[in-house]
Design a protein around this nucleic acid. Structure first.
Length: 668
DNA sequence: GCCGAGCCTTTTTTT
DNA sequence: AAGGCTCGGC
């Protein structure tokens, strides 16, 4: 037996040493799933399988980053680095860069993230809707996305307004040589299903495939996997149906519950020993999740002795809730030398983090907000990124429009509008219009000069960007200088701090570029832009659990992580479960989400809810979550924080208070 | 063509 | 509470 499988329990070892034929690992929360998967990879390499023939696909970047890290650590002589690890989307992006022509795209396509999608759909709606009609851009996009993920046809564009929007959107995307996230999967599937040669190449390239977070995969991802894995199906999938929380993105829980329909006669291994949490926490989690119907029954157990009960705290309002958490963390840090990194606060919606951040800042608590994709949404970063994108693919209208008059260079709305009209007539991008003499003749002398200046600038930098071995940092710096971007920012800034923040953003962005080049020497501008859009660059340097500070993170993003001390604020009707989940019939998924949150905790867990919560400036009353009723109270300690602050309430007072609360809930 | 003031919507979760 | 968008004055 190899050294690295020796410390595994029997089930773990069985999973880690099974290489050939389909394997399904049902891994409950905290059962050492990642350890098993990495041990398995190490085992395969030890058995003589080439690392580069092993492909590990995950659903989120975080999982990919973690796997990459652990595999690297586990394998000697740098073999681990050769294992190919990435998200489905990143995998498809790479694949499509290589074979773009097979699906009717050019290799220099650009990937649109949600902000660009919204811009484009707005443009489509503007052109298509008569003045009386309205359509919410977000909703239109959601519908388009759903259709793509389910492989549905859009319907007749002449009959159905939505279908017309969807069709126009798709046509524009193709004309501009851009793809959205869904297209990556759709086109990836199309490529593999329709091209035998490509498929054969891929089968040679990736001979052993592992899929993590399998409960979150959707039908497209399943199709991709099936196309990627030939008989005798050397595929290993790992997941936990109780942690399926991406149904809203089309995740098919049946991919895992009916795995055998896709890959016949799989070996199934269940991991049920939990190495993470105390029995109090596990009991609480189990009592919650058993309320879901149709799950694969699992019995998580733990050898950890029970130290602290789970606490359920009621507080007056969200400010007090944040204050309570901050105070306790502060006390733990100074009294018990508990490092900041031991703590995590998990919340349902991103906007819940703001008030926590305020409370933490006031107490000088070091914290980090994980996942908030703020950085690349910053205007200065977006501006520069748009420039780089245009250098790569000038036909990307949305990015082009963003930089066309940034910094101000005398190409205003009127000119842009004209160019747009012209591009419509010619059925091509705005860029083509800008370069077209017919168009240039139509506009005033002054604008013409400005447009010429712009197109020349882009051409000049585009040719140096595509040249082999160009340093992207130098190029970007030169571009910023030439367009006088910093001067523009200086002028735009209302306060000096604002300018400083922007300047800082630019320098961070340049550092990102430098890091990317450092790590991916052979890759160029296109790959850099992909990595930014797909979000897969940021992780390796801030390995989330190691980084300093209290972790503020959404419940969704917390999956796969663990922390000694966890707070779950806002366990209220409308938040957990989220208000929209009622309308959409996704309460079960909210329960799983809550379950994921609970099972992140190793030692201490505090749930809280408030009586009043501020939303959009308005104070509103809040009701405790119905899920709280489902929790087994044996290992739970209930506290009214407001009373607690005045004097320690007697047990009786407490009981009375919660009895009243329960009565309230039952009515609900 | 440029810029500021005021109005309006926004957020569920991620690739 | 904040950022995007529209409109009106320059």
């Amino acid at each position: 037996m190899s050294g690295f499988t020796g410390t595994l329990n029997p089930q773990q070892r069985q999973a880690a040493t099974h290489i050939h034929g389909p394997l399904l690992i049902l891994a409950g929360a905290g059962t050492g799933k990642t350890r098993v998967v990495t041990a398995r990879v190490a085992f395969m390499i030890n058995e003589g399988i080439k690392a580069e023939h092993i492909l590990a696909v995950t659903f989120t970047n975080k999982a990919a980053a973690e796997m990459r890290e652990r595999v690297k650590d586990m394998c000697r002589d740098g073999q681990g680095k050769k294992v190919i690890v990435g998200t489905f989307h990143a995998f498809c992006a790479k694949l499509l860069r290589e074979f773009a022509e097979h699906v009717g795209y050019k290799k220099n396509f650009v990937i649109y993230s949600s902000a660009e999608q919204v811009s484009l759909i707005k443009r489509v709606l503007k052109g298509l809707l008569i003045k009386e009609e309205t359509m919410d851009p977000q909703k239109a996009l959601a519908r388009i996305s759903k259709a793509k993920n389910n492989g549905e046809e859009v319907g007749d564009p002449t009959m159905d307004l939505y279908a017309a929007v969807a069709e126009k959107y798709a046509n524009e995307m193709r004309a501009l040589n851009v793809m959205d996230f869904d297209d990556l999967l759709c086109l990836g599937v199309k490529l593999l299903e329709e091209n035998g040669d490509v498929r054969a190449t891929l089968h040679q390239r990736h001979r052993y495939i592992t899929v993590d977070e399998f409960q979150d995969t959707n039908s497209l991802q399943m199709r991709l996997l099936r196309a990627l894995v030939p008989a005798p199906y050397n595929v290993c999938v790992v997941g936990d149906d109780d942690q399926s929380i991406y149904g809203w993105r089309g995740a098919e829980i049946t991919n895992i519950t009916e795995f055998e329909n896709f890959f016949p006669n799989p070996t199934v291994v269940k991991l049920e020993e939990n190495y993470r949490s105390t029995t109090a926490i596990l009991h609480t989690a189990n009592s919650l999740i058993k309320n879901n119907a149709g799950r694969r029954e699992k019995q998580l157990w733990s050898r950890n002795i029970n130290v602290d009960p789970v606490r359920l705290v009621v507080v007056e309002d969200d400010a007090e809730e944040a204050e309570m958490i901050a105070k306790e963390i502060e006390a733990g840090f100074y009294n018990n030398k508990e490092p900041w990194e031991s703590y995590a606060v998990l919340f349902r919606t991103n906007d819940q983090s703001r008030i926590l951040e305020q409370a933490f800042r006031a107490k000088k608590i070091t914290y980090r907000v994980v996942g908030a994709r703020s950085f690349f949404d910053r205007r200065e970063v977006k501006d520069i990124l748009s420039y780089l994108t245009i250098l790569h693919n000038p036909h990307d209208d949305i990015s082009l429009l963003r930089v066309l008059n940034t910094p101000t260079r005398g190409i205003g709305g009127t000119t842009a509008e004209l160019a747009r009209d012209h591009s419509m007539v010619k059925q091509f991008s705005i860029w083509v219009a800008l370069c077209d003499e017919d168009f240039l003749r139509q506009i005033p002398e002054k604008s013409r000069t400005a447009v010429r200046g712009f197109t020349e600038l882009i051409c000049k930098y585009a040719s140096s960007a595509s040249a082999q071995g160009t340093d992207l940092v130098t190029l970007t710096e030169a571009l910023i200088k030439e367009v006088e971007y910093m001067e523009y920012l200086q002028k735009m800034a209302k306060k000096p701090e604002e300018y400083n923040a922007w300047e800082n953003g630019i320098s961070l962005f340049l550092t990102q570029i430098a890091n990317f080049q450092e790590n991916n020497r052979s890759e160029g501008l296109g790959e850099f832009i992909d990595s930014v859009t797909l979000n897969d660059e940021r992780e390796d340097k801030d390995d989330i659990e190691k980084k300093k500070g209290v972790c503020l993170i959404t419940l969704h993003a917390s999956k796969g992580l663990e922390f000694p001390i966890v707070y779950l604020p806002g366990i209220e009707q409308g938040i957990v479960p989220h208000k929209r989940s009622f309308e959409e019939g996704r309460v079960d998924e909210e329960r799983r989400l809550f379950y994921v949150g609970i099972t992140r905790a190793r030692q201490k867990l505090t749930l809280s809810f408030v009586r009043f919560r501020t939303k959009w400036g308005q104070k509103q009353s809040s009701l405790p979550s119905a899920f709280l009723n489902e929790l087994d109270r044996t290992h739970m300690h209930e506290v009214d924080y407001t009373m607690h602050m005045k004097e320690t309430p007697t047990q009786e007072e407490n009981t009375n208070f919660f009895a009243g609360l329960k009565a309230m809930l039952v009515q609900e």
